[in-house]
Write a protein that binds this DNA or RNA. Structure first.
Lengths: 210, 210
DNA sequence: ATACCTCTGTAACCAATGTTACTGCGAAGG
DNA sequence: CCTTCGCAGTAACATTGGTTACAGAGGTAT
């Protein structure tokens, strides 16, 4: 755990802070599909992601889903922080997109450290900042793009975070993430295949040239 | 300026911080329609809003607009903070929705104060938190609601922040904010009028019972 | 092998939204 | 008073995306 932590966070946190994290944090290794957090859950801790990818989803009252963004190594969940501050329930769902390693830090330490360590303060501010921009760009996509463009963006982003040009998803999976319907996604994927941009298979698809 | 500041922020900032703000901040009084910030601008300072309403807009490459949310008294612009941190350009446009009073604080003070004053730190964190949730709810509206629901929400919110049941906007104005077209908005407004929820006039409309 | 189940392809249809075009109204200014 | 201009009403049409329904393909379990 210590070497993992140092490797990923050693450059930005001072020695002393690293030690504190090691003392109070708990190491966690989870598998793809693990649900970290459900909408309405109270938040127990703040995750520091060491490896893997976590996807953050929003859901409305009717159960309709929407992918917000991915967390990658070195990221933390600003939503979590936002919730901690107000001692509120989670507004989002977090699911491991790949196997992942992370350290959970008790939320009480958050405020203590923001006073004590400049590096921690910067880290937290920076996380907020990155997340805010991420949300903005998600908003842009939904507000200004049509489904075909959103689909292409989705495939690219998914390939990027998983470092894999094979997307292991069914059409239905994709439809959920984009808050669309299976038939629509099938239709658009077919067009992309006809254009030679992707190759479709059962349960997965290859990205050729997006 | 001092009494305005104390009135609005006296409860959350300690005396010493208030004094610092008075020393380095510049008081500003602007009229409805004043453009605080344009997309691509570098950010000079951080606004502390004392009275009035500022609307925050997003725009894409094609010039299509979208209202993100309103800032009210006691608010600050997290986007500004986010941009300062990275010394980046603004991602948004900010326009006075009503006449407004505010204090501009040089961005260099931001970091100094986050180390020095706990109240400032909490204020900044809280702003991020509020803005993050605001963005989330904007996202919800766009992703999960149809135009008629969004329109109703828009009218309600606008009436709330301006404390006025008369909405002084043309159909085109509304269409811009919702990123729709004038004809669509006219159509939907007409329906709302037929349902007895609003009363239409030239250049403004009355909210009867939304 | 057979039965079953999930995933994909496709067509036909519908609803919501956006677009174009034209009308008339009313305010403002010469 | 008359002209002009911006705003609102409305119809006709196009496009996008969502829905329903069904067929076939491929994998899995018995």
């Amino acid at each position: 755990m210590i070497q993992d932590l140092k490797e990923e966070y050693g450059d930005i946190f001072e020695e002393e802070l690293i030690n504190e994290i090691v003392q109070v944090g708990t190491f966690k290794e989870v598998q793809e599909g693990y649900k970290f957090m459900e909408i309405g859950d109270y938040i127990r801790g703040m995750p520091l992601l060491i490896s893997g990818v976590i996807k953050i989803l929003r859901e409305d009252e009717d159960g309709d889903e929407l992918l917000l963004y991915y967390l990658e190594k070195g990221d933390t969940c600003s939503m979590t922080m936002a919730c901690c501050m107000g001692d509120k329930k989670s507004e989002i769902r977090a699911i491991a997109e790949t196997d992942a390693k992370l350290i959970m830090v008790p939320i009480q330490k958050m405020e203590e450290w923001t006073g004590k360590y400049k590096s921690w303060r910067n880290f937290v501010f920076n996380s907020y900042h990155v997340r805010l921009n991420e949300l903005l760009s998600t908003l842009d996509n939904i507000a200004f793009q049509k489904m075909d463009e959103r689909l292409i963006g989705y495939l690219k982003e998914k390939a990027r975070v998983t470092k894999d040009n094979i997307i292991h998803s069914t059409h239905q999976d994709i439809a959920y993430d984009l808050h669309s319907s299976r038939v629509v996604i099938s239709r658009l994927l077919k067009k992309l295949e006809e254009m030679g941009k992707i190759k479709l298979h059962r349960n997965y698809l290859e990205i050729l040239d997006l």
